[in-house]
Computed example of a mutant assay.
Amino acid sequence: MESFVYTASPSRVIFGPGASSKLPEELCRQTLRAALILSTKHQTGEANRIRDLLASNAVGLFSEAAMHTPTEVTEKALAVAQSLKADSIVSIGGGSTIGLGKAISIRTGLPHICIPTTYAGSEMTPILGETADGLKTTRRDPKILPGTVIYDVNLTMTLPQGLSATSGINAIAHAVEALYAPDSNPIIKLLAKEGIRALAESLPIIVKDANDKDARSKALYGAWLCGVCLGSTAMSLHHKLCHAVGGSFDLPHSETHTILLPHTIAYNSSAVPGAMKDLASALPDSNSNAIIGLNSLLDKLGVEKALKKYGMKEDDVDKAAIIAMKNRYDNPREVELEKVQELIRRAWAGEPARTDL
C-alpha cells in the first residue's frame, strides 16, 4: 500500500432527527451561557426557534449573513457580538451563515457551533472564503473549523427541491476533488466514494418527493462525508473557478458549483484515470464513465446548466479566467489560460462538458 498522511478533523458531530434540541445540553457541556445566533434574513424563523430553545443563554440574533461572506457584513456582526458580550456563536443555515460564523470565530476565538440546513459541507472544513472589493479570497486554518456540528434532518425537510439538488452537487464537488488531491489518502477516498454514492442515490428521490425523510437523512449523511473530504485535502481547479466566478460576479454558490463541475471533471479526466474510475463506481448509470454518470445525475435533477441564466455576461468570461489564473490551486493537469477561458465559456453558454480541451 502507498504511504500517506491522514489528519483527523477534531470536530464533534451530533447527528439525528431532532438533534438540534440537544443544543442547550451542548452549550452546558462547554460552559457557554451567552450565544449569538446567526442566520440569513430568510431563515430568521428557524433562528428564532433556536433562540427560544436557548432562552436566557441566547444574547441576540444577527440575521444578515450573505453569500460569499462579505467582510463588511462580518465587521457589522463582530460589533454586535462584542456589544452583547457573546461567549459563543451558533450558526443555523447554509454556507453563507456558517461562513459568517467562521469569520467571527477566527477573529475572536469564540467557540462556534453549526446547525447546517443545506448540504454545502462548509461546517466540516477549516476553510474560510471571504469577499472584499469584489474579490473572493480563501484561507485555511485549523482554528476556522467549527468545534461542534449538529445535523438535524428535520431542519432540511423544507429545503426547496431545486436548492436541495444544487446544494447536494456542491457537496459532491468537494468529494470529487478529494479523489485526486495531491494530499489525498485511502481513508479520504473511502469517505469520498461513500459520500458521493449517498448523495447520488438520495438527491433524485428528494427532487421527486421532498418529504422523503430517509432520503433527506441519507443526503445529509453524504454531505457530512463530502465536507470532511474538502476539509482534509487541497482544493483544485474546480474550487478555484467557483471562487473566481461566484465571488467576483456575485453568482449563487451551489448553482455555480453545479454548472462548472462536469466541465472541470472533463478538463482533468485524462490526468486522473484512477479518480475517474472511483467516481464512476460511485455514480449510478455511469457505464464506467464518470462524465456520463454525472450528466445522467444532473439530468435527473433537472438543474440549470448555464451560468448566463444567473446573470453572468459573456464579457465576464475572460475576466473570470484571468482571476482564476492568479494564486492557482494545485491541479493534476496544467492550467492554461486559453483552455480555462473556453471551459468557462462552455459553462456560461450551458454547453455539454467535453474532454477535447
Rank of each mutant, 00 (worst) to 15 (best):
L135D: 10
G99N: 06
A79V: 04
L225V: 09
I169D: 01
G16K: 03
A103C: 09
S184C: 13
V335L: 08
S286F: 12
P262A: 09
P352L: 06
S184K: 12
E123N: 03
A244I: 12
L199Q: 07
L38E: 06
R51T: 08
G18M: 10
R51H: 07
G302S: 07
R49K: 14
T156W: 03
A132R: 14
M276D: 00
L100P: 02
I98L: 11
E123R: 13
R107K: 15
A171D: 08
S232L: 14
E75Q: 14
N170P: 03
H243W: 01
S88T: 11
G231Q: 07
H68F: 03
T158I: 02
A81D: 05
E130W: 03
S270F: 00
E314L: 12
V59D: 02
R12A: 05
P10V: 11
T108V: 13
S105R: 05
G247V: 11
R328S: 09
H112C: 08
I113T: 10
V59G: 01
L230E: 03
K326C: 06
I50M: 10
I50W: 01
H243V: 09
T258R: 00
L191W: 10
P186Q: 06
K213E: 14
H253Y: 09
L155H: 07
S202D: 08
I188N: 12
K305A: 02
P17R: 15
K193S: 04
L36K: 13
I172H: 02
I188L: 09
N211R: 14
P146K: 08
N57C: 11
R107F: 00
K193E: 12
P126R: 11
I291S: 10
T264L: 04
G302C: 05
R328V: 01
S63A: 15
W224R: 10
A192I: 08
D141G: 13
L294F: 05
I291D: 05
L261V: 09
S63T: 02
S167H: 10
G147N: 02
S164W: 04
I323P: 04
D299W: 00
S88W: 03
A347N: 06
M124T: 08
G60Y: 03
